[in-house]
Design a protein around this nucleic acid. Sequence first.
DNA 1: GTGTTATCGGGAATCGTTCCCATTATGCCA
DNA 2: TGGCATAATGGGAACGATTCCCGATAACAC
Lengths: 139, 139
Amino acid sequence: MSLMATTQQVKRRATNQGAAVKEALAAEDTFRSAQDVYATLRANGEKIGLSTVYRHLQIFVDDGLADVIHKPDGESTYRLCGDASTTHHHHLVCRSCGKAVEIEGPAVETWADKVAAQNGFTDVNHTVEIFGLCAACAA
Amino acid sequence: MSLMATTQQVKRRATNQGAAVKEALAAEDTFRSAQDVYATLRANGEKIGLSTVYRHLQIFVDDGLADVIHKPDGESTYRLCGDASTTHHHHLVCRSCGKAVEIEGPAVETWADKVAAQNGFTDVNHTVEIFGLCAACAA
DNA sequence: GTGTTATCGGGAATCGTTCCCATTATGCCA
DNA sequence: TGGCATAATGGGAACGATTCCCGATAACAC
């Protein structure tokens, strides 16, 4: 994103399901799919529907509480990332286990904006994700 | 990609359909979805099935003739990019019309590899796509 | 030509995600 | 504290992109 970084939170109701989803995400520092989170919650005996999981994940993203990564296979994965005030950053993600490390690359940001401007592009944003095998999974 | 840059082409049969798909892609310098290409071909009276379009697009990717971009909405889009020997590059893509400009950022490549190495990640690759509105679409 | 076999294509199947809507539960106010 | 307005829920249907299956078709070699 580049414009509208407001992230204005709308009033929302506190529900068990919402808390459960957040908790599930908070439990791991990996990017997890909606289906995955749903399965985990159900396995824990949580009473929640798939729609609700999707709903909350999207809300977290809208509120700037979570980041999304679209895996090459098309699946969307989510991960809580600090709070809404955290600066823009990217991720180094393990292809195998999903574990992610937040990284920053100021140079990339400016480079992206410059290149876009040179080509007459406006309203620019970019995606930069680095995939690899973490030390643990390499074994 | 970082390893396996071999791009070994298997012997393939020359078919009208394969040629048609390549032609359709070659006609525009924009990233286009399989559905889009299929619709265009059918509109042109081409006799081809959707499966075949997907098949050839995937073949182009495997042979290193085309690049893929997974749009945020999950749709995959394809574009012919020089030939297999072309160097690794990224794209500046118009969110609206799909028009793409090939860009290079040597600094980004080295930065990505360095960051990954520092965190113990191996077998690294990365995706860098810049989205924006091209001058034409901004109007 | 003829035969072998890669390729085609249409429809069924899959998969992630969104939509719909009657039911439930939260938060506010009296 | 009780009751109400309405946000949130969830299960199943709907959807769109992609893949799979497999009998029919067409390339290429001899």
